[in-house]
Amino acid sequence: MPNILLTRIDNRLVHGQVGVTWTSHLGANLVLVANDEVSHDEVRQNLMDMVLPDTVATRFFTLQKTIDVIHKAADRQKIFIVVKTPQDVLTLVKGGVPIKEVNVGNMHYAEGKEQLTSTISVDEDDKKTFKELHDLGVTFDMRKVPDDKRNKNIMEMI
Rank of each mutant, 00 (worst) to 15 (best):
R8C: 09
R8P: 01
R8T: 08
I9A: 06
I9H: 04
D10Q: 14
D10K: 13
N11F: 13
L13G: 00
H15K: 11
H15G: 08
G16I: 13
V18I: 15
V18Y: 08
V18C: 12
G19D: 04
G19C: 06
G19H: 03
G19Y: 00
V20G: 00
V20P: 00
T21G: 01
T21E: 13
T21V: 15
T21H: 06
W22G: 00
W22L: 04
S24V: 14
S24D: 13
L26F: 09
G27M: 14
G27E: 14
A28T: 03
A28R: 02
A28V: 03
N29P: 13
L30Y: 07
V31T: 08
V31P: 04
V31C: 11
L32I: 11
L32A: 07
V33G: 02
V33C: 08
A34G: 11
A34R: 05
A34T: 06
E37D: 14
E37G: 00
S39F: 01
D41I: 10
D41W: 10
E42P: 05
E42K: 10
V43C: 07
Q45S: 07
Q45K: 13
Q45H: 09
N46S: 15
L47V: 14
M48K: 02
M48C: 10
D49A: 08
D49K: 12
D49Y: 01
D49E: 14
M50C: 12
M50H: 06
M50R: 05
V51E: 05
V51S: 05
V51D: 06
P53F: 00
P53H: 02
T55A: 12
T55P: 02
V56G: 05
V56W: 04
A57F: 04
A57N: 12
T58H: 04
T58Q: 04
T58R: 06
R59K: 14
R59D: 11
F60L: 03
F60Y: 13
F60V: 06
T62S: 14
T62Q: 05
L63N: 03
K65D: 06
I67D: 02
I67F: 03
V69L: 12
I70D: 01
H71F: 12
H71P: 03
H71G: 08
K72N: 15
K72L: 15
K72A: 15
K72C: 13
A73K: 09
A73W: 07
A73V: 12
A73L: 11
A74R: 14
A74T: 13
D75W: 09
D75A: 15
D75F: 12
D75I: 14
Q77F: 12
Q77N: 14
I79K: 02
I79T: 06
F80M: 04
F80N: 00
I81M: 11
I81Y: 02
V82I: 14
V82P: 00
V82C: 08
V83W: 03
K84D: 08
K84E: 15
T85W: 01
P86Q: 10
Q87T: 06
D88L: 04
D88E: 11
D88A: 07
V89E: 03
V89K: 01
V89W: 04
L90E: 07
L90R: 06
T91M: 05
L92Q: 02
L92S: 01
V93M: 05
V93P: 00
V93L: 08
G95C: 08
G96V: 08
G96A: 13
V97T: 01
V97G: 02
V97E: 03
I99C: 06
I99E: 03
K100M: 10
E101C: 11
E101V: 13
N103F: 07
N103S: 10
N103H: 09
